[in-house]
Design a protein around this nucleic acid. Sequence first.
DNA 1: TATGAATGAGATTTCATTCAT
DNA 2: AATGAATGAAATCTCATTCAT
Lengths: 198, 198, 198, 198
Amino acid sequence: MPKVTEEHRAARREQIVRAMLRCVAQDGFHRTTMAAVIRESGLSAGAVYLYFRNKQDLIRAIAETAIADVAVVVEEAAEAEELPDPERVVLDLTQRIVDLGEAHGVELHRVALQTWAEAVRDPEVLEIARGEAGRIAAAWVTYARRAIEAGFLPADAEPTRVARALMGLLPGFMLQRLVFPDVTPAAYAAGLGDLLRH
Amino acid sequence: MPKVTEEHRAARREQIVRAMLRCVAQDGFHRTTMAAVIRESGLSAGAVYLYFRNKQDLIRAIAETAIADVAVVVEEAAEAEELPDPERVVLDLTQRIVDLGEAHGVELHRVALQTWAEAVRDPEVLEIARGEAGRIAAAWVTYARRAIEAGFLPADAEPTRVARALMGLLPGFMLQRLVFPDVTPAAYAAGLGDLLRH
Amino acid sequence: MPKVTEEHRAARREQIVRAMLRCVAQDGFHRTTMAAVIRESGLSAGAVYLYFRNKQDLIRAIAETAIADVAVVVEEAAEAEELPDPERVVLDLTQRIVDLGEAHGVELHRVALQTWAEAVRDPEVLEIARGEAGRIAAAWVTYARRAIEAGFLPADAEPTRVARALMGLLPGFMLQRLVFPDVTPAAYAAGLGDLLRH
Amino acid sequence: MPKVTEEHRAARREQIVRAMLRCVAQDGFHRTTMAAVIRESGLSAGAVYLYFRNKQDLIRAIAETAIADVAVVVEEAAEAEELPDPERVVLDLTQRIVDLGEAHGVELHRVALQTWAEAVRDPEVLEIARGEAGRIAAAWVTYARRAIEAGFLPADAEPTRVARALMGLLPGFMLQRLVFPDVTPAAYAAGLGDLLRH
DNA sequence: TATGAATGAGATTTCATTCAT
DNA sequence: AATGAATGAAATCTCATTCAT
């Protein structure tokens, strides 16, 4: 009952979350029916409700996963031993977001857009988003500090402000991916490069 | 008589759209019921359906309005007689987006987030978004060209790439407004300024 | 919109309550499905929910009706110009309860039993029951006073205590009707007569 | 081995019935879920279904217990060596019903009300109720005979009719306990005393 | 005997839309 | 043009019961 069950539990939750991710990337949270998630997960209705109290609970789990995924990627980049310059870091990050989606078989930015929309109306999702956004912002501040030290940015730049601007580029990329599917990480990052080059 | 009717029609549509905007900023598109819109608009169910074929039609009208509002603002900035530098233009734009929301009594970024989410699942909304995004992108290209000419940006910068990056900053701002309501246009633009300063 | 609608509204509610009464007398509150009430009422699901917020609301309406019907009967008896003796009053009341049920096409005691059971678990139904029981108790006190004056009861009897005992006879009758359907008002009242006769 | 097993079996059944009694007194039969009974009993789902075929079976066991408890009490009173007068017998019985509930930690009248309601819709529960009611009625007839002999009641009273009326007083008491929790056995019995005194 | 995760039929409720007036 | 009561398909969620272990 102890370890096996706990793992089993986690695996089942994962199974359900994955199923819902596939649905949500297509139909959004509110056009995704529980019936669809149940079908896609291969479980029964009862089983799904054994692992998630209700649909909103499941939505929150997805929201958490989606933003946490991005947060991890940004943290890794900020703490990389060899610090990349800003253009390079934006290139890496956008590329990894694209890759992450492909690995999951789900376009991550589509889910992210749903999550932001949901944060507008569910205070609990907003709180989750705020928490993860805090982590992301902190990672960017770390990056900014190191980038200033490394001479990538002006010595008198203020790390927190710089962090905000750099952080803002990611949602911009995700939204553009939706509207212009041919926007590549390379092209996007190059745009930043043009801005920063003297 | 046709003209009066046409005006009347437009006024009624506006009245309904305004009502739905208020609802959507709170509850999102799919948690906003037609009953709520009807109540908020002060009209009857029948009347609303006289001006909009169905809910999706109304959603599309909102989507169009919301993004078009932003597009107009960007176009104006790009064509300003006296060209502002990039920091300044981001300051102006983010500020005008905030002001626009206050003028409508609705936080515009909340509606924008809904619209993007809806574009994920409704191809027609995606098409609208694509069209408006095209206008916005074009305006940014215009701006980039003039900014290069004006010496705000490196001479060898490629306008279309620069446009993408600058354009990407706006969604980033809107999302941050949701999560950290105290992010100001000034702070956000200053972050860009730090990045661009040598 | 004014008077016609109000009457219409009342008629619809009555229609639904009647339909549910028929169901409840057979299946009890919790085995009566809304689908059954909807079918029996001849309306649509939406219409039923237009007049009652939810099933519990409908249950409460039934509870109120059922006990109020009994209360009215007892009040009438207590205020009758020509005061009947206790045996007679119990005969009249039990008979009228039986008649009332036949008039409605529903055995009233079956619904009453459901209502009492529901009062155990729904505080709001309990409150309704308490209110109506208060009216019934008051009516019995009135009767007891007059019966003492009329010499039907000992001069030193205490009206409130007598009221309680007399009042207690009615549920006893209703329950016996369920278990022994051949118990008649006449037989039941005669039992009381035997008790009271010297 | 069979005997030990049989005792064990009985103990387990008792354990489950007690658990359900606590649930039913609060929530009624149909709002009591098997999950609640399982939790309250401290057993597993499988175990409960080892001792009771299904929920209805368990409901019937409760129904039987609840009414049988009352029946035993009435029988004891009817056969008491020293015959109490009617007021006294009603006092004793109502008091013992209250005590019985306290001994079980469950207000018995609440369960009784559920049982009557259930008898309305489950013919098998009705049959149980009828059987126990028959025993109770018979006990009252016995009492009535002896009470006539003892001079507590008129010599020409008909025992079966008197039995019905006396019997009817108990449900009346139980219902009043629900609605007016401060009704005491003493007050209730005194009301009958007032009625009977010349 | 005992467990408790899993099942899936079925219950309640909502809500976009229509249409007689 | 305007009304708003009515519709009914569809969505979410529950819960009695089973069965592999």
